[in-house]
Design a protein around this nucleic acid. Structure first.
Lengths: 191, 191
DNA sequence: GTCTATAACGCGATAGAC
DNA sequence: GTCTATCGCGTTATAGAC
């Protein structure tokens, strides 16, 4: 996250606090204090606390959507697409850890309009993921397992990567990039 | 969740609301209204809002611990132990959906003392899980993959099952019990 | 066991001085 | 752009009547 102006600075700071304690447990006074100013001063840069949340959540959601729109139409097989998606989740986890955590934990606190936008993006993402799986099954590249269970299982793990990443050093990210696709796609039991 | 007295009734009702909106977004007035009484009346049965949260979280955490202590020492192989653990997560998801969601989402809002208790239970659970994996690798039953990644991946999926369960009918739980162990343990790619 | 009334406090947000 | 002061409201929790 490059910080270009005061508004970005506020949003990045808020995301860090939201990740740690959750949207509702963080006050405007907390965010201001972290920046060394008073809560009232925040309102020269942002409209409301809700605006901070929606900026954070929709920023990450659009990152995922953009990548999926780029990968989905490519002429590579389903396994290569799934590997590219896993890589992208790892990349976003590393680059936007706090934003991602905030999206995962606090999306339900968006106001009506932004909630609808977020859910539309998320549903479209899952629909593309589902099609990739079904394409892989049709072409005999993947086992014919219950698609909903596979989507749930893989996406849940990928979405929660930030929990794991927070605890590990950046060196181990290379291990993650190498081993996670194996674990998710090939399982852990010996043949 | 069998409701035996007024206190249980309050806790079950609170868990349902906490699951939907999160601990901090639910007020004592909300809980009371759901029960058809006034907020002040709740305090005849419970000490504080914190007490409701810790009762919920520690109840589920202890369920997991008890099952692990029962499975861990058994004379069955590592794959059978992992299958038993997966079954147990599905069972608790079905039997205590709201409590489980609350534990997953709101454990960080526990007060200092209960937080320490919860973390101790969770760490012990993960340690047992880790030992089962390592035992399986040593006996050549499991692939020699990075244990931390496997623990993270499987436990994250199992902990989030309540999200999936809420959307599906109870008939599909049978599908889940049959297919989830396959997906988690054997992967999705054709050999 | 539930009620009304209220204490004590923190919240998001605004007005207006500098 | 940041400040002080403040509004109006919601929060957990308690006191005391019934």
């Amino acid at each position: 996250m490059k910080i270009t102006d005061r508004k970005s600075e506020i949003i990045v700071t808020a995301a860090k606090l939201f990740k740690k304690r959750g949207y509702n447990a963080v006050s405007m006074r907390d965010i201001a204090q972290e920046l060394g100013i008073k809560a009232a001063s925040l309102y020269n840069h942002i409209k409301s606390k809700q605006e901070i949340l929606s900026d954070i959540v929709l920023n990450v959601a659009e990152s995922f959507t953009n990548h999926m729109e780029q990968i989905y139409p490519q002429s590579i097989n389903s396994i290569q697409k799934l590997e590219a998606i896993i890589q992208n989740h790892i990349d976003i986890t590393v680059q936007k850890t706090d934003f991602l955590a905030c999206m995962n934990n606090d999306w339900m606190h968006l106001d009506e309009e932004n909630l609808a936008t977020y859910l539309k993006l998320r549903n479209a993402y899952e629909a593309s993921f589902r099609k990739i799986l079904q394409e892989g099954i049709a072409k005999n590249e993947l086992e014919n397992q219950n698609s909903e269970i596979v989507i749930f299982s893989i996406l849940t793990t990928l979405r929660a990567l930030y929990l794991w990443y927070s605890k590990k050093s950046s060196v181990e990210v290379e291990v993650l990039k190498k081993d996670l696709p194996k674990t998710l796609l090939h399982g852990i039991v010996k043949n």
